[in-house]
């Protein structure tokens, strides 16, 4: 099977947001980066799918800066066979459509059977690129998958919706976005880390695609008004009830 795992390099969870000088983005000068939480689940699912099929190849695909290959090597250390980096040092300014179209252009040439992505990238939190890529390619897509079986060119996925657990059936090729619970991503062993250094990593220029969305302003959220400790222990409960009823009026 020809399997692709799409990953995104995002600021770490601890990152502090500061609007950029022009107010149209975030000041990235002090960001540290990691592979987005859910994309690690996508890489694991790609490797497990290959292992279950008994043969095949896992390509890790990303759109990001040329300096971001450390995180991509980590994905190779966890079982990816090769990587394709669509290099764009301004990747954080791309909108979902522009990212999706660049991935679509690359995927069209890759002849993949299945493409795994994270449910959402934890920077823009937009959860858009997976279903957009599938729609542009004319492929089926299942989002937020927590259980998956793939065999004989078909797949069956489980997703948790507001209605309950749905089973979704589809034909390959398909795009699957991965939710927490689908698998437990492995940690890279020393052998994997050493092997990853020698695995092919190709850097390509992505298609230049203008953004369709327009950033008008990026600002910090208004600070919450100062709260207060109403007291200590169970003796403080009446004061809390009074505050919730008369001050906040939520009870």
């Amino acid at each position: 099977m020809n399997i692709v795992a799409c990953v995104k390099r995002v600021p770490t969870t601890e990152a502090v947001a500061k609007p950029a000088a022009d107010g149209k983005g975030l000041d990235a000068s002090e960001f540290q980066y990691m592979i987005s939480f859910y994309d690690k689940i996508a890489v694991e699912q790609a490797v497990q799918t290959k292992e279950a099929a008994g043969s095949g190849e896992v390509t890790v695909l990303t759109l990001g800066p040329s300096s971001g290959t450390k995180e991509i090597r980590e994905c190779l250390a966890k079982g990816g066979d090769k990587a394709v980096v669509l290099t764009d040092d301004d990747w954080q300014s791309r909108d979902a459509r522009s990212t999706a179209k660049a991935l679509v252009a690359q995927l069209s040439a890759m002849n993949a059977d299945v493409v795994f992505m994270g449910r959402v990238a934890t920077d823009r939190d937009n959860a858009a690129v997976g279903p957009m890529v599938a729609t542009y390619l004319g492929w089926p897509c299942v989002t937020d998958v927590i259980g998956l079986e793939i065999a004989d060119g078909k797949g069956s996925a489980k997703v948790e919706t507001d209605a309950g657990i749905e089973t979704v059936e589809f034909q390959l090729p398909a795009v699957i976005t991965c939710q927490k619970g689908l698998n437990e991503p492995r940690t890279a062993g020393l052998k994997g880390i050493m092997a990853a250094k020698k695995k092919p990593l190709e850097e390509l220029a992505p298609e230049a695609i203008e953004n369709q969305s327009d950033v008008i302003e990026v600002a910090l959220p208004p600070a919450r008004k100062e709260g207060r400790i109403v007291g200590e222990g169970a003796a403080a409960v009446p004061a809390l009830i009074d505050a919730l009823q008369n001050e906040a009026q939520v009870l």
Binding site: P11, A15, V16, A17, P19, L26, T122, D123, R124, D125, N211, Q212, S213, D214, V215, I216, E217, V218, A219, L220, P221
Partner: peptide
């Protein structure tokens, strides 16, 4: 136009479309 959180609400972006 919309306003939506970035970085899990650490920042708020006002966004529109070019068409």
């Amino acid at each position: 136009q919309v306003k939506r959180p970035w970085l899990a609400g650490k920042a708020l972006a006002t966004l529109g479309t070019t068409g």
